[in-house]
């Protein structure tokens, strides 16, 4: 506690730095992953290669990537640009799959109907396809929001300042409370940003608000291939009904 009262200006500083590294990476991941996921879904024969590609990208451990990225793109080793690029790589690796699944969840018949009433492909994307893919996409954004915030801290071992600095500093000086503070603040930041993402989702997709209370089950219904809303709504009841049966076994 004494440590915190003496160091809180620095902690606040690191918190803001951490935020400033996370948010651009999350936004950039979304901007890159949506077109990629869309092409993976619609391009003939693209889905397999794209998904395998992002799978391999995801398999690369983060610490080596902090070393390799600067050599590849010429950013300084200990810089926020290196950090944001690395975070974006992982964000894209996860989000492309979500985006592909999200677009797969939009029924082809709906897109045909949109074309039939006169939507161009462009306007059909913005006004029909993207909104319908929204809930599944949102679930993906929530996943990368939390993992990005957590991943930022790894940069501390090579000297990129963030809340992770509390881990390296706390470890070197043997202050357990400092490390603990870092963990708590990172989890808090993740929860905060996740909450903001959910809020943004509700504002952008007001029609999902009614079922906001069953978000967990919603996601399970989301990628159902046929995308019939009846199935999505029926899911929670099914899940509830399965419970007593399972318990009686």
């Amino acid at each position: 506690m004494k440590w915190l009262s003496q160091n809180y200006p620095q902690v606040v500083d690191l918190f803001l730095t951490h935020l400033a590294l996370s948010v651009p990476a999350i936004v950039a991941s979304l901007l890159i992953a949506v077109p990629l996921g869309w092409s993976a879904q619609h391009g003939r024969g693209l889905r397999g290669p794209v998904l395998v590609g992002v799978g391999l990208l995801y398999a690369i451990p983060s610490l080596p990537l902090f070393i390799i990225v600067p050599v590849l793109i010429g950013t300084p080793l200990r810089s926020s640009s290196t950090m944001i690029v690395v975070l974006t790589v992982y964000g894209v690796a996860v989000l492309v799959r979500s985006a592909a699944d999200a677009f797969a969840s939009v029924p082809a018949a709906t897109l045909d109907a949109a074309a039939a009433v006169g939507h161009t492909r462009w306007s059909s994307f913005w006004r029909v396809e993207l909104p319908l893919a929204g809930p599944v996409l949102l679930a993906g954004v929530r996943v990368i929001t939390v993992s990005t915030v957590s991943l930022v801290s790894v940069g501390a071992v090579i000297g990129i300042q963030s809340l992770g600095t509390l881990f390296t500093d706390g470890f070197q000086r043997g202050i357990r409370f400092e490390v603990l503070t870092g963990i708590v603040l990172i989890v808090a930041l993740a929860v905060l940003l996740d909450g903001l993402v959910v809020l943004a989702g509700r504002l952008l997709m007001p029609w999902t608000r009614r079922s906001a209370g069953i978000r967990g089950s919603r996601r399970r219904g989301g990628p159902g291939r046929r995308g019939d809303s009846g199935r999505v709504l029926a899911e929670p009841q099914l899940a509830g009904a399965a419970q007593p049966e399972g318990a009686s076994r």
């Binding site: 915030v149 809340l163 992770g164 881990f167 706390g170 490390v179 963990i183 989890v187």
Partner: peptide
């Protein structure tokens, strides 16, 4: 959500 480096240290 738990940062791995935090847990390690």
């Amino acid at each position: 959500a738990v940062p791995t480096l935090g847990l390690l240290t």
